[in-house]
Amino acid sequence: MKKFTFNINDNSYSVRIVSQEKNTIDLEVNGTSYTVEMEQELKTVKTPTLVRTASKAALEPVKMKTPAATAAGKVTITAPIPGIVLSIHVKVGDTVKEGDLLLVLEAMKMENNITSEKSGVVTAVTVGVGQQVLQSEVMIELE
Rank of each mutant, 00 (worst) to 15 (best):
M1I: 08
K3D: 08
F4Q: 13
F4N: 11
T5Q: 13
T5I: 14
N7P: 00
N9C: 11
N11A: 12
S12A: 13
S14A: 13
I17Y: 08
I17D: 07
Q20T: 14
Q20Y: 08
K22C: 13
K22Q: 15
D26G: 06
N30I: 05
N30Q: 02
T32S: 10
T35K: 09
E39M: 07
Q40Y: 00
E41S: 05
T44I: 11
V45E: 08
V45W: 01
K46Y: 03
T47K: 11
T49M: 10
L50R: 15
T53W: 07
A57N: 12
A58H: 09
E60T: 12
E60R: 09
V62I: 15
M64C: 06
K65T: 11
T66R: 09
A69R: 12
A71Y: 14
A72S: 15
K74W: 01
T76F: 01
P80V: 01
P82M: 08
G83A: 04
I84G: 06
V85I: 12
V85E: 04
L86E: 13
I88N: 09
K91R: 10
K91F: 01
K91L: 04
V92C: 06
G93K: 07
T95M: 07
T95G: 10
E98V: 02
E98H: 04
D100V: 00
L102P: 05
L103G: 05
L103S: 05
V104Y: 01
K109H: 03
M110N: 07
I114W: 05
S116Y: 00
S119T: 10
G120V: 00
V122G: 05
T126A: 07
T126N: 14
V129T: 08
V129E: 07
E137M: 01
E137L: 00
V138I: 05
I140H: 01
E141L: 00
